[in-house]
């Protein structure tokens, strides 16, 4: 046996692709990074329910309504799986939620954009979920076991999300002129924010390098972004819709699409809380949390009473004897 120090042993395990499990020794920074990343991911799922939930009552057919309900519900489930994964690291859901509600924790900025038409539900499924999947597929191989396992489950469930979104876009792009216009308008508004979902450029990304070393992340922001553009452009062409980027063109030499510069000022502005819906999203979560407090407390009180009754009831005592 070699006598490496704990940190080296840990890195050796990671390099050997051995998963890290909750009770294994890990550097404090690894734990913190994971809690931060997993809980941000969980928050994104939960906040992400809001823009889409916005259209549940207005879904244009019973079939679409069922699909949308199931999809938004999946996001609640994904948030739940992720909070659970964070809890294996010693965090607790309520504390994590507090960080979201007080603005201490971040979530994906994409959900700070409004859903103003039904086509947005299509565009979110197609583009936002499409971008998320790129990231999530990578995360199924993350070095931390519970996170990777949660991501496997999430990816399995997510597979219908993007398809239903594309189906909505297709129906509208091939539909009436007004529907096509709605679809194009949605693409115009969601394209750039979707590219921003991959985060800042690699040179400006604060956490990337260490995360790559720890195999929490396996591809850089720019790599994933390029991959997304490459697969999405033909999908837009099939729809007959135009991606709102005059610089977008196939680069034979690189074997990739070149695309225009992201408006980083807008990106940072939304991250800082100045997006069109930052306030509304947090307010909605705060309201649900506060309005729900008495319900959560009632359930605890009821369970305690039930326990006590078990203890004092003569029948229970007889059974115990």
């Amino acid at each position: 046996m070699t006598h490496l120090n704990l940190e080296d042993q840990f890195q050796a395990k990671i390099d050997a692709e051995t998963k890290i499990e909750p009770k294994d020794w890990m550097p404090e920074a690894y734990r913190k990074t994971l809690i931060r990343q997993i809980s941000q991911h969980a928050h994104s799922e939960i906040v992400g329910m809001l823009p889409e939930g916005n259209w549940i009552t207005r879904a244009p057919s019973l079939r679409r309504k069922l699909i949308l309900l199931a999809k938004v519900q999946d996001e609640a489930g994904h948030g739940l799986y992720l909070y659970s994964a964070a809890e294996t690291l010693g965090a607790n859901r309520d504390e994590l939620v507090q960080q979201l509600l007080t603005g201490k924790a971040k979530y994906s900025s994409i959900f700070n954009y409004p859903t103003t038409s039904w086509a947005d539900i299509g565009a979110i499924g197609w583009l936002v979920d499409g971008a998320a999947i790129m990231n999530q597929v990578m995360l199924t191989r993350a070095s931390y076991g519970p996170y990777a396992r949660a991501m496997v489950r999430i990816c399995k469930e997510e597979s219908f999300h993007q398809r239903q979104g594309y189906e909505i876009m297709m129906t509208m792009a091939k539909g009436s002129p007004a529907q096509k216009q709605m679809a194009q308008d949605a693409l115009n508004r969601w394209w750039w924010p979707s590219l921003m979902m991959f985060g800042p450029k690699d040179d400006d990304s604060a956490h990337s390098e260490q995360s790559m070393k720890w195999k929490i992340k396996r591809k850089s922001n720019d790599e994933l972004r390029q991959q997304f553009v490459d697969v999405t452009v033909p999908q837009a062409e099939y729809l007959g819709l135009t991606i709102p980027d005059p610089d977008l063109q196939w680069n034979e030499d690189r074997g990739h699409y070149d695309f225009g510069e992201i408006n980083w000022e807008e990106f940072w502005n939304v991250v800082k809380g100045n997006g069109p819906c930052n306030r509304q999203r947090i307010q909605a979560r705060v309201k649900a949390y506060e309005d729900g407090a008495w319900v959560r407390e009632a359930a605890v009180a009821y369970a305690e009473k039930k326990d006590q009754r078990k203890l004092v009831s003569p029948k229970a005592q007889a059974e115990a004897a």
Partner: peptide, 10 residues
């Protein structure tokens, strides 16, 4: 996986 609940029924 895991979840939160107040008692075994829930």
């Amino acid at each position: 996986g895991s979840l939160h609940a107040t008692d075994e029924v829930m």
